[in-house]
Simulated scan of single mutants.
Amino acid sequence: MLAFTFFWNAILPLYEVITLRTLGKNREKYGKVRLWGSVGFIGAVALVGGLLELVPIQNLPWLLLPVFAGIAVSAFLVPSEQGERKPPAPKGSLKAIVSHPAVVTFFLMNFLLQVSHGAYYTFFSIHLAQYGYGKLSIGLLWSLGVFAEIALFLVMHRLTRNFTVRQIAIGALTLTMIRWILIAEMTDVLAILLFAQLLHAASYGALHAISVQYIQGFFGQHHHGQGQALYSGLTFGAGGALGAWLSGFLVDGFSTSAAFWGGAAAMAIAIVITWRGLRPPPVHGEV
């Protein structure tokens, strides 16, 4: 797993770049491509959740091996990029982009977003089990969140036409904060929990979709790959790790509910930062 995630996290940003370059002027259709990863996630968690009701958890590595093999095979099916070699980037431009106030705000927003997800990715299943939910139910609840994400990806191009990046970001962050509060306090009410899982469309789907296009807008043709790598490393990597670590302290000291309250607090800070500093990217991707 260490070796897999080391290389996977390095290559994932490049997949985003290849996808957006392939889409070209149709980059608003990114969500319709990205949703297939979510479809695979739904199938995996639902299937494995059901299988683990029948077989011991010790068999999980054997269940994962075919998936890893499929990933390896599919990597060879990705075509090489075609086209002329791009001209060299102007010196110092990457530093200017990264230090731009709007870009700093963007990375802080996404860093705090992933900090808030630390409790979710680390303790959500444990939290549900404490309230009596079975393995299959937990798998289906995970799937519901990703199903909402897929639905959002299908209509994301319409949202980006009718709302600004700042409006979408603030709205999604607010819904994410509400989601963590509902999970923290009302897990035993199934209808509320189902609604909270549907909010995954905002806490991941909407913010990831606008973030990928935001990076393309600010980092442009020359530094798109580096921008995606920074986005992946600083947010999903550093933010997710810090969130998981901090939520562990909250769980040990208090409860799993406290960890989700910590995520809500991170979202409150992110909303203020985004409100004050997030600005739309340049039209042609140059600062």
Rank of each mutant, 00 (worst) to 15 (best):
V103L: 08
E28G: 09
H208V: 07
S137F: 12
A264H: 03
A264T: 08
G171Q: 02
E286F: 05
R34M: 11
G132N: 07
W180C: 01
S257C: 04
N110D: 09
M186S: 13
I42P: 05
Q114N: 12
A89C: 11
Q130P: 03
F124I: 08
P66Y: 07
T274F: 02
A191E: 14
P281Y: 02
A72R: 05
W8M: 14
R158Q: 12
G253A: 06
T105A: 13
Y131F: 14
V146S: 14
I273P: 01
A69W: 08
P13A: 10
A259E: 00
A191L: 15
Y15Q: 09
L52T: 03
P79L: 10
M1A: 14
Y214C: 08
L246A: 09
Q82F: 11
V33C: 06
G134H: 10
I183M: 13
M109W: 01
G171N: 00
T19N: 07
G134F: 05
G262R: 01
L190S: 09
F195Q: 00
Q228T: 04
V78Y: 07
A259R: 00
H127D: 07
W142N: 06
H224M: 14
G118M: 04
L141M: 13
L20I: 11
P61H: 09
F107S: 05
L60Q: 05
P281L: 06
I183H: 10
T5M: 15
M1P: 11
G40T: 07
G205E: 02
D188N: 13
L207E: 00
A169I: 08
F41E: 01
A10Q: 08
A148K: 00
I271Q: 00
K25S: 13
F153K: 00
G37T: 10
G132D: 03
T274G: 07
K25T: 12
A229D: 02
Q197M: 11
T187I: 11
S203I: 09
I71G: 11
A69L: 15
I170K: 03
